[in-house]
Structure formats: C-alpha cells, structure tokens
Simulated assay, not measured.
Amino acid sequence: MGETAALAHRLPARTDTLLSLIDHWAKAFPGAPALGALDYAALRNESTHDGDTAALTTVESHDPLVAVPSTLIGLADGAVAFSAQTPAGNPSPGELLFPVRRDLKETDFVRMPQNRLIAMAMALAKRYEFSRDDRIYLSGPFDDPGTWLALVAAIYAGTPISLDPEGATLLWILDGSDAVVDSRTRVLHLRTTSETFADMHRRHPELTLVNGLALPEGCGLPICSDPRDPPHTVSTTLGRPLGGTEVMIVDPRTGMDRLLYEAGEVWLRGKGLMTGYASGSRAFEAARFLPTGILGYLDSEGRLVLSDGKSDLDAIHDDDDDDADTG
C-alpha cells in the first residue's frame, strides 16, 4: 500500500483529465513504460492532435494502441463514444459515452465525465494497491467502462499496461478468455461464475481474486471484492462499494431501507456514477441515489449478494403476491 498511498503527494493538484496524469508521469519518470512499447512521453505524443477536434469522436477499435490515443485526442476538446452508432443528444466535452442496452430494446449511452472515471479509478488503484512495480494485462472490449476503469487506475498509479499476459502481476479479464496465472500474478479479476471463483481459490489460494458488480452506470465496477475480507467471500458475494460510493437496499415500492439480509433493489450514490443517459430518457441527479434495477441484499459486513442470481425486481412483486394469497 505504501507506494500507492504516497501517490497523492506526488501527483499534480489537477488530476481531472487523463492527459494531466500522462503528462505527470512523462515528466516524473522519463522512459518509464506506459502502454506496450510506448513510454509515457511516446503515449503523449501519440495522443497529440493538430488543430480542432470534433465535438464527438467515435472509437470502434479494440486495439489499445489505437483506442487509447484516439480517446485521448477526442477528449482534448470534445466527447468520445465507443460505438459506430451516434448517440442521441449533445454530449459535453470531456465525456466518455459507453453503449448500454436498456430494457432489451434500443441501445442507449451512459454519459461518464472523465473526472468521474478518474475518481473511481483512484479508488480501485488504492483498493488493490496498484503500483509502478506492477504490470497489468487487460483483456476486455474498449466499449466496456470496466476496461477503462482498470486502464485509468493503471495510468493513475503509473502501472505499465502490458499487451502480453506473461509476467503480469495484475490480470483484468472481462471477455471470458482464459486467465494465464503464474508465480508473479497477485490480483485476478474475472467475470465468471461463483463456481469458477471457488475453484480458482482452491487452486491459487495466494491470489487476490476480484468479483464485483458490472454496471455501466457506475464506471463498470462500483462494487467489488475487498482484499481485507476472507477469501471465500469472493465466490459468495460481490464485495463492497469502492471508496466514494454508497450502497443502499430499498423496497422499490416505498423507498424505505431494507434490513440486512432482506432483499430489495440496489441503489447507489457517489462521485463515480454517470451523469445520465445520452438520450435523456431517465433523469439522474448526482446528489440522489440511483436505482439500478438489480435485486440483492447486504450481509452483516456490508457485502452485496445478488438474490437467487436474479437481476430484476419481478421476484419482489412475486413475493408480495404470494403473501397476499396466503393472507
């Protein structure tokens, strides 16, 4: 934790843009690896734009050597959308727009200002102690905010981003590909089943395994495993909120809090949530809690557990009907 905790004393006062973080490391550690074969100065040069940028840049590539510089260029004066589809509305400069399917119908876009992404990335880097001595390998699509969350956490901490999993100390696997674990791996994040987590823990008890709530509206991973918790909880819970994020379990009909172990809708509030949808179809105020539409409960230690694997609220109303029938 020492080096990561000390970053606050070395980073510039202004850390609300990705380019400010990259500029800092380029000056502080010339020649230090950043992304693949690029050091921070080279990454900065790749991300330099000539003249005005478009109000909205679309990035479709999943090659990090293309996607990252293109995104940085687009954010210089405008917004960036990770899709060939043009978002509705008028995004603000500095926003990242991630596609999300709502109600199994049209594709909308989550509006995520880069300063909010950075705030959540800082919390992620601190939780898992990202440092300049680590190397992170990311295997996930670039239209997924969870990929960007880990990537920005690495940039914040000065952690080299590797294009090869061999020798990486941090593995961030979001696309279902196999995790190549070796003696240097210390943190592994997977999107997989609880059974796979339990099996991975049996085979690699030395690893810090990361489970969590994949939610585009919350920068991709607003709730995740806490290394301070017993290892077996990784396969049975989704962990705790990242720093700066609050979670509440609510009866969606009344807005009243549920007790521990009582199922309800998961509501979130914090500095790392979206500012809204590009279509404007659902208003969202940052000071209020965001209803997620996900059903779960909190255990006695504040860890989130999904209810019976369900991610909707039908079960709540089904229970109400059952109560009415038996009453």
Rank of each mutant, 00 (worst) to 15 (best):
L117H: 09
L117W: 09
L117K: 13
I118Q: 12
A119H: 14
A119K: 15
M120K: 07
A121Y: 04
M122F: 10
A123P: 15
L124W: 02
A125R: 07
A125F: 00
A125I: 02
K126N: 11
E129S: 15
E129V: 13
R132W: 01
D133T: 15
D134Y: 10
D134M: 09
D134S: 13
R135A: 15
R135Y: 05
I136H: 03
I136V: 15
Y137S: 12
Y137T: 13
Y137Q: 07
L138V: 11
L138G: 07
S139D: 13
P141F: 03
F142H: 12
D143S: 13
D144I: 10
D144V: 13
G146N: 06
T147Q: 06
W148I: 12
W148G: 11
L149Y: 01
A150S: 15
A150C: 14
L151H: 07
A154T: 15
A157H: 00
G158Q: 05
G158E: 04
T159R: 07
T159N: 08
P160I: 11
I161D: 11
I161T: 15
I161Q: 10
S162K: 11
S162F: 03
D164V: 15
D164Y: 11
D164W: 02
P165D: 09
E166G: 14
G167M: 05
A168V: 09
T169F: 01
T169C: 07
T169W: 02
L170Y: 07
L170C: 10
L170P: 03
L170S: 03
L171N: 06
W172V: 11
I173V: 14
I173L: 12
I173P: 08
L174S: 07
D175R: 05
G176I: 12
G176M: 09
S177Y: 00
S177E: 08
S177T: 14
A179G: 04
A179Y: 00
V181I: 15
D182R: 11
D182V: 12
S183I: 08
R184T: 14
T185D: 02
T185M: 02
T185C: 12
T185H: 03
R186W: 01
V187F: 02
L188N: 05
H189K: 14
H189W: 00
L190G: 03
R191I: 14
T193G: 10
T193M: 04
T193W: 00
S194Y: 00
S194N: 05
S194W: 00
E195N: 11
F197H: 13
F197M: 06
A198H: 08
A198D: 12
D199R: 09
M200S: 10
M200P: 00
H201A: 13
R202V: 10
R203L: 06
H204D: 02
H204Q: 01
H204A: 02
P205E: 04
E206I: 06
L207P: 01
L207K: 01
T208D: 00
L209H: 09
L209P: 06
V210R: 01
V210G: 04
V210C: 00
N211C: 05
L213K: 05
L215C: 09
L215H: 07
E217I: 10
E217W: 04
G218I: 04
C219K: 02
G220A: 05
L221E: 04
L221T: 13
C224R: 07
S225E: 03
D226V: 13
P227V: 13
R228Q: 13
R228H: 06
R228W: 00
R228S: 14
R228P: 01
P230Q: 12
